[in-house]
Write a protein that binds this DNA or RNA. Sequence first.
DNA 1: GTCTATAACTTGATAGAC
DNA 2: GTCTATCAAGTTATAGAC
Lengths: 189, 189
Amino acid sequence: MIDGFMLTKEKIYIEAARLFQEKGYAAASMRDLADRLELRPSSLYSHIRSKENLLEKICFENAERYGALMQECLALELTAAAKVEYLLRQHIRIALKHPTSITVFNDEWRHLPPVSLKRFIGMRKVYEENFCTLLSQAMQEGHFRSFDPLLVLNTLLSSLLWLHRLDARATLPKEDAVIDLLLYGLRST
Amino acid sequence: MIDGFMLTKEKIYIEAARLFQEKGYAAASMRDLADRLELRPSSLYSHIRSKENLLEKICFENAERYGALMQECLALELTAAAKVEYLLRQHIRIALKHPTSITVFNDEWRHLPPVSLKRFIGMRKVYEENFCTLLSQAMQEGHFRSFDPLLVLNTLLSSLLWLHRLDARATLPKEDAVIDLLLYGLRST
DNA sequence: GTCTATAACTTGATAGAC
DNA sequence: GTCTATCAAGTTATAGAC
């Protein structure tokens, strides 16, 4: 599953993400990681710098993924409302495509060392501000109902955070149904 | 803030919840906890049994809170749709009233020891099944649109999980606005 | 690039004096 | 019920042989 032609370094990153997902960053040890890769703990350090650096790689890889998504989205010739829907659809696809990595990104970033933590929070702030601006525009354009944009942002993004936690056995949720529920609501009246 | 007439034991439970919330269970040490209470680490053990037991207390206190909520809700003379709305409103109030305890309950339960973990997951399963049944009934009664009930359950419950993470400085979100957004959706058309 | 050995430190928890 | 002292185990990471 993790095999084929793959550098030891790449195997370490992949298995680290799985381990951090399963046990959480703080409860995961480098011995656990080495065991899963059938290596001695010390051998890991020929390929990677530190446990913290593994977390940094995972968190920033995904922070940049979302940053790139936002830039791409803002460049589209769409209404603000359509851009928001586009972002939500991409959030769903990313969560289903990279569940392991995204779980670590979402749940373990607070264990980043101080300098990285600050940068990470800064990147998230930029993303959220852009998202909020789109929501405000869509409300002004009349496509969205008027709400506190921050409340909408938090509710929408939060509502998708179960997707990356699904285990492999679960039937995949339908992207269209999630979008429909968020945009048109649960009530029939 | 934590003072007044309060047993050392109670202070320990409260400060433990804060500590687990801030650093996560695995990254929080009994030395941290003792420092905050101006005690030596060994003194804690005159009042509590173990670190794990602190987590058990916090998790099951809240599991029982939700269990009681569900029983109370099911006994109400309301339509299924009204019961769902009632549950959502109570979820919001609980999250805003007990943010610390609920954060630990939501984010740290996986660190429960095996026997407790199994019981905890069982209690959650019962709660979710009851919730799902109400959603199905409300759809059959025509008050809610037809969706996969499990998708709706996950999306609704997940959408509220940002509420308990708000720091004290944030302006409190309006319960009615959150409910309105979930029930009637974001789109104006 | 893997290994053995180990340094340097932190962890949860206990023993026993007061 | 708090303290000092301490244990046994686990932690990340490095040194240096091969």
